[in-house]
Design a protein around this nucleic acid. Sequence first.
DNA 1: ACATTTCACGCAAACGGTTTCGTGTTGATA
DNA 2: TATCAACACGAAACCGTTTGCGTGAAATGT
Lengths: 355, 355
Amino acid sequence: MLIYLPGNHFNIFGLKKKITLKHIARELEVSISTVSKALKNSEEIGRDTKEKVQAFAKLYNYKPNNIAISLKNKRTKNIGVVIPAIVHYFFTTVFRGIEKYANAHGYNVIVCVSDESFDKEVINMEMLANGSIDGFIMSLSAETQQKGDFNHLKEVTEQGIPLVLFDRVTEEVACDKVIINDTEIAYQAAEKLIKDGRKKIALITTYGYFNVSQKRAEGYRKALIDHGLDYTEDLILQLPYREINEESILDFFDNNQIDAVLCVNELFAILCMKLIQKRGFHVPKDISFIGFTDGILSRYASPALTTVAQHGDRMGEVAAQMLIERIESDIDEDEETFRTEIIGATLIERESTCN
Amino acid sequence: MLIYLPGNHFNIFGLKKKITLKHIARELEVSISTVSKALKNSEEIGRDTKEKVQAFAKLYNYKPNNIAISLKNKRTKNIGVVIPAIVHYFFTTVFRGIEKYANAHGYNVIVCVSDESFDKEVINMEMLANGSIDGFIMSLSAETQQKGDFNHLKEVTEQGIPLVLFDRVTEEVACDKVIINDTEIAYQAAEKLIKDGRKKIALITTYGYFNVSQKRAEGYRKALIDHGLDYTEDLILQLPYREINEESILDFFDNNQIDAVLCVNELFAILCMKLIQKRGFHVPKDISFIGFTDGILSRYASPALTTVAQHGDRMGEVAAQMLIERIESDIDEDEETFRTEIIGATLIERESTCN
DNA sequence: ACATTTCACGCAAACGGTTTCGTGTTGATA
DNA sequence: TATCAACACGAAACCGTTTGCGTGAAATGT
């Protein structure tokens, strides 16, 4: 039996265990509901009782149990974030944006990393969908995009759990989305290279069917064609995510007289730039580079990389805002009025292109 | 009234809402407890009933509600991670390790970013401590370290919530810890520079009282002294976290004939290396560099940076393992048998030092 | 002095599970 | 045929809160 005396609510283990309404009620010889109401300053409860209860609660640092409240309200105040990777500049900035907005609005964030795997994505979502979260923010794993299987997303939305997709999205799922204007910004980036007088502009992209890569490729293609340059598959190099064969890159550069490169991420750009420089070429004089993702690598590379800033922070904030609005809009499902928010990407010019 | 017919458990909103034990019980005209037991394959329940219940549950994709289970068992299967920053290579690798281990053991991870702020750290911990998580893994914010106020940590441990500190730890809190052998590895790094014949070895470190920086400085100092080199404050440059004044760095190099640099992080190293190279010096011929944190910058810099790998992944895994063991060891608090696990850091030699 | 408010509080259900214990029915046994 | 164990299931408590409603006592009105 615990005895609650001021300054002494250590139990036999020397622990100040969390106190519950029941404890307060027992100690003050009132009912649990009285305590609950007193703490909420209900008009139903008398002055004296309220003061007594509040003082006691304060003394013992009473804090309501989140889990119990979640069960009662069917609101966890948690949002689930499922992303393909965490050790990745773009995703961490998006996450930072999400966390910032969510926290400011009383929500916590549970992160699961799909590791680009379809199965992990499914498992993680199923775990979280059983009451742990009020909504999802996610970006599709590579495997999911390749597979084209979005049933796990559909199930979640059919259950009435709000979902916001960002960056790597799909049209097959009806939900809110946040993306950047990939095609346009890729067009602008390519156009900048063209205006700098470059004639053989390569595109270095990923393997597989990444939504964003495709859109960027489309912008690149359109820019070349619009400006009367030859668009040929020879100018496009696809690289795997891991275990990049440097030889193949050098071969690619050797076989085409490339004078500018647009890469769909910063890693490819930095890597190629380094190889090319070792080969004796000068950046940007001989070859200029533009990448995507204004990450830490872009800023500190030599030369600093001209790049497309995707504004991940902003993206995360917008995604969180859309999700939380959905969650809190009690008006039963604004039936099919899903929005797609477009974050304007911007080209940041640095040393890897001519001013 | 919902009617449960195969292939039709959509409600009036067109939503396949999650089904509960109560629904199954009502539909099958048995009690809730029977359903619960049947789904657990209890011996108490007859064959027919079990089959009937299980089939129904499968058909309607019944999954128990995590929140209800958490309330019952007083176990959330969530762990709280509080870190100073997320857009930061080292912390993301640690996080990856935590997430990997936790997920493999059925735990989810709630992340809160303290943003190097004491107040945010406190608020985040208080939010999570009210039942949302079973334990904490954290690394102290800069402000907390400066302030030296660890009451929020002590309160948590006094409540019986397990806590594991990593990297930025403090001796003032009794809990499990995971750190690297900072002093020794800094000693080894400095020693390597000395053995390469360097005479004027600088230390570039942070302002303020970072536990790890101090320990690294200590290793550096000891190496110099042990090898008969002059140890002088002139050789130490302290930089702020943000808004680094490049002039002051160049002044520092100009005023001392430095031929090697040990930096307490990779950013400082990359930055200084870049400045020095612009100044016309050759790395590593004129000046060699060693950094801490084997991040993406180190690998892709020119020249690639020799650096101390802190093995964040491993650190995260170990921290998660220690925490989960604590959580699941029902044996009431192995009173004061806290461990401090040391992850062996390793020096990775690359191009910024002579082979 | 009696009827009616008002006040201050407690009861109990609910959220969605788990689990202990009790009980009616059945079949076997003496 | 009376006894009893085995079987199959239900009732209820519990985790910690919230909240609608009921109720005894005091305060008010007539």
